[in-house]
Design a protein around this nucleic acid. Structure first.
Ligand SMILES: [Mn+2]
Ligand SMILES: [Mn+2]
Ligand SMILES: [Mn+2]
Ligand SMILES: [Mn+2]
Lengths: 223, 223
DNA sequence: TAATATATTTTGATTAGTCAAAAATCCCTG
DNA sequence: CAGGGATTTTTGACTAATCAAAATATATTA
C-alpha cells in the first residue's frame, strides 16, 4: 500500500502533467513547487517513486507517470472527487470548503465505503467543481469544454467546470451565480482591457479579467 | 497537532485505564500488547508522551493520562464513535464493519465536518455498539448498566451496550437479535456450566458462556 | 562560446516511529 | 532474603520524509 505522501505526489504529478505543456514531463522545480517541498526533496522522492515503478525518471530529465502510477493517481483523484461530492450533496457543506477536507479523507477511506458513497450519490460523473470523476476502472470521461475566453460575443453558455479551487475564487463565482450547471450569456470581449463581460440569471452583468475567465470552462448552447 | 500515532496511543491508554483494575495505571506490557508494538517501543512512546505532558510516566511505574491527555483521548473517542454512528445511520454500513473504517477516519476528519455529522445525527449520546459518545466539552455521559451475568433469572432487560467490537462476536449478537435497544428476558443462570440463557423476540432461546454474557451490558426494565 | 543564471542533485542532518536483542530492574516464591 | 522469571529499559539499527546548503549540470544570453 502506498503511503499518503506517495499518493499525494502521484496525484500532483498527474495534475501537473495535464497542465504542463512540455510533453507531459514534470520538472523537479514544478513538482517541488506544487508539493511545497524543497527541490532536493522532490529529487529524492522522484528516485524513490521510480524505484517503485510508479514514474519514469532520468536525472535532469523530469518525471512522468508510468501506467501503474497513473492508475494509482486516478484512484486517489476518484476518491477525492467523490468525497467532495458527498460532502456537498449529503452533508450540505459549501463547495468552497470541501477541498481541504477531501485532501485528507482521500487517504483514509476504504474501497467499500467509497463504493457506498458512489452508490448513494447515484454514480456521478463530475464533482461540485465540474471536475470529472475517474471511474473505478481508471477511465476519465472528459466532456469537450471551451474556456470562457474562447467564446464568441453573444453566445449562450452553460457553466461546466471551474478550474481554480481557491476559496476566494469560488466565492466570487458564487456571488455572480456562475456555478457549474448555470446558464449565462457572454456579452462582450474587450481585447484591449483583456476582459470578458457576462451575465447570469437576473443579476447585473459582471466583467472579469482574462486570467479569471480562463479558469471557467463552459459548454456552448446551440441556438 | 498530535500525529495519528499519538492519538491512537492516547485513546488506547484511556480505554486500558478504564479496563485496568490496578489504580488506573497502564503497564508497558499491556500498552505494548494493546498497540501491537514491542515493549521497547511502548517505553519510548511513554517517554515522548510524558515530554508532551500528555501522560504521567515514571520509569518502571507505568503510564496514566494527564488532564490534557484525557481531553485529547476523549476527542479522538468522540470522533470515532460519531463516525461509526454516521456510517451505520447515514450510509447503511453494518455495525460489524464500521470499527476499522472509523479507526482511520477519526484522524482525518475536521472539527467542522464532525459538527455537521453530529447535527445530522441529532446529537446522539451513544454509538451503534451502545458506547457513550463523549461531548465536545469532554464529558462522558455514562448510563448505569448491568452486565448480563449479574441479572436475576426471569428479569426483563433492554440490551444497552456490547463491549466487544470483534466482527464475529457482533454477528453472533445480531443472529440472536441482541442489538442495543432490543428487549430480552433472562431465562436461567447455570452456575455449574457458567452459562446464561436468554431469549429475545420470537427467536428460540440462546445459551452463552459467562465470558460472552459479561460483554453484554443491559438496562433492567422494572415490572 | 564564455560567462552567468537557473535547475538539479548530492550531502549531511533531523524527526517520528518502529524492531531485535542485550542489559537492568523489579518482584514473587521458595 | 536470595534466586529466577517477568517486566522494563537501553542500545543500535532501520525506513520514510523532510530541510539547508554545497556541488554540479544545464540553459540562456551577451
Ligand atoms: Mn491528500
Ligand atoms: Mn473538485
Ligand atoms: Mn485510529
Ligand atoms: Mn463503537
Amino acid at each position: 500500500m502506498p503511503s499518503s505522501t506517495v499518493e499525494n505526489y502521484l496525484k500532483r504529478i498527474y495534475l501537473e502533467q495535464q497542465a504542463e505543456p512540455a510533453g507531459e514531463i514534470v520538472s523537479m522545480k514544478s513538482l517541488a513547487g506544487a508539493m511545497g517541498v524543497t527541490p532536493g526533496t522532490a529529487t529524492s522522492m522522484a528516485r524513490s517513486l521510480a524505484d517503485s515503478r510508479l514514474v519514469a525518471y532520468e536525472p535532469y530529465g523530469g518525471v512522468k507517470l508510468t501506467a501503474r502510477g497513473r492508475t494509482l493517481a486516478l484512484r486517489v483523484l476518484r476518491r477525492h472527487r467523490l468525497i467532495e461530492s458527498f460532502l456537498v450533496d449529503a452533508l450540505g457543506l459549501d463547495w468552497s470548503e470541501v477541498h481541504d477536507e477531501a485532501e485528507s479523507l482521500e487517504h483514509a477511506i476504504s474501497d467499500k465505503l467509497l463504493d457506498r458513497i458512489d452508490e448513494f450519490l447515484g454514480f456521478p460523473s463530475v464533482d461540485p467543481h465540474g471536475d470529472p470523476i475517474p471511474t473505478a476502472a481508471g477511465e476519465v470521461r472528459q466532456a469537450a469544454l471551451t474556456a470562457l475566453t474562447e467564446v464568441e460575443e453573444g453566445a449562450e453558455v452553460r457553466i461546466a467546470r471551474v478550474l481554480d479551487q481557491d476559496e476566494k475564487f469560488l466565492r466570487f463565482v458564487d456571488r455572480h451565480m456562475l456555478r457549474p450547471g448555470t446558464r449565462a450569456r457572454v456579452l462582450a470581449h474587450d481585447h484591449a482591457a483583456e476582459a470578458v463581460t457576462l451575465q447570469s440569471g437576473k443579476l447585473p452583468a459582471v466583467t472579469m479579467g482574462r486570467t479569471a475567465a480562463a479558469k471557467i470552462m463552459v459548454e456552448l448552447i446551440r441556438g
